[in-house]
């Protein structure tokens, strides 16, 4: 009777994926295909007819030759790096403080809740608020700086390109560090407490525990954070568009804002915007693949082994 049948569970993988696939096919496939198709046409304005270009990659060529696009690409990376590094740094630090029982941070719960709050408020509200704060010639920041004697007279801060980029980076950082922290904390909470107990018994201090136990155990969550932040950062749209409309002098123009302005304003250059979107998609895909490669681990093999083990045991029981 032993090993009479080896139960095949693989089919459940297909079953459980059906809802996702159906919803995807129904709601998203057409829009995605449409985007890819129009990149090879001359669609613009209010046109609905698709005329394919004689030279299929003309739109792509024109995007690569577009100085404003290249500039937007540079801005996007600059703003993303300037907000992501401090963001992940602070989030990791806070995670370490809040999850380490040794610190016993009083009110940690309240802090955790509050830090995510900037993410709840709509980007439009935040954009208006920051514009008002740094306005010229009358604004709270200008008033304070003048009364402190830092500025002799009000300064048109938002006309300064570095200042504008820095502010957009700061807003992004401030809106998202709490989100990143919440994700990392949820990852830490998923770690088996016994592991921490064992580390404690072994006499590991806080720093050691964090780097030797916590970080390796939340590696897959870290990968998620890195990849989603890369995607979110390179598609950054709300704040740059709402805060300064990509200005001054295109200093805060990100590729997404550029694509939006191409497609939904002015000449409504849908085809070119679609080509720019595809270029961004490929760029993001390549960079993400790099991240997956760097962060790769034995997860896959480990799971496979465990599944096999589970199926074998079940088979044995039967």
């Amino acid at each position: 009777m032993k090993k009479k049948k080896l139960v095949k569970y693989g089919k459940y993988g297909y079953f459980f994926s059906i809802p996702f696939i159906v919803a995807f096919l129904f709601f998203s496939l057409y829009p995605i295909i449409y985007t890819f198709v129009i990149a090879f046409t001359d669609l613009k304005g209010l046109g609905t007819e698709l005329n394919f270009l004689d030279e299929p990659f003309a739109n792509f060529k024109s995007i690569f030759a577009n100085k404003t696009f290249l500039r937007a690409l540079g801005n996007t990376f600059f703003i993303w790096i300037c907000n992501f590094i401090p963001q992940i740094g602070l989030a990791l630090l806070l995670t370490a403080w809040f999850t380490d029982k040794r610190f016993k941070v009083k009110g940690a719960g309240v802090f955790k809740i509050l830090f995510y709050m900037p993410n709840i408020i709509t980007a439009a509200t935040i954009a208006i608020l920051f514009k008002a704060l740094f306005d010229y010639p009358m604004s709270p920041v200008n008033d304070i700086m003048v009364s402190l004697g830092v500025f002799e007279k009000p300064v048109e801060m938002l006309q300064n390109k570095m200042m504008a980029k820095g502010l957009v980076s700061f807003i992004q950082f401030w809106m998202w560090y709490g989100y990143t922290m919440v994700i990392l904390i949820s990852g830490v909470l998923g770690i088996d407490p016994e592991i921490f107990e064992a580390a404690k018994v072994d006499g590991a201090n806080g720093v050691q525990t964090f780097f030797k136990i916590t970080i390796p155990n939340i590696r897959s969550i870290l990968l998620f954070t890195l990849v989603t932040s890369l995607i979110g950062g390179l598609n950054m749209f709300d704040i740059p568009q709402l805060f300064l409309l990509g200005g001054p002098d295109n200093a805060t123009l990100t590729t997404s804002v550029f694509i939006y302005q191409l497609a939904f304003q002015g000449s409504h250059l849908y085809a070119r915007a679609a080509a720019a979107s595809i270029i961004m998609f490929i760029l993001i895909a390549v960079l993400s693949a790099g991240m997956f490669y760097i962060m790769r681990d034995r997860d896959a093999e480990k799971i496979k082994k465990e599944i096999k083990e589970a199926e074998r045991q079940k088979g044995e029981e039967a």
Binding site: G10, Y14, P31, I32, Y34, T228, I259, A263, F281, K308
Partner: peptide, 27 residues
């Protein structure tokens, strides 16, 4: 579960995530 298209499916899901949203909205 261990199924044949598992990795391909996962890769597809990650790829979908990367498609910039603005333009697909038109469709």
């Amino acid at each position: 579960y261990d199924w044949k298209l598992r990795n391909a499916f996962f890769k597809m899901i990650v790829a979908i995530m990367m498609i910039p949203a603005q333009i697909t909205m038109i469709g």
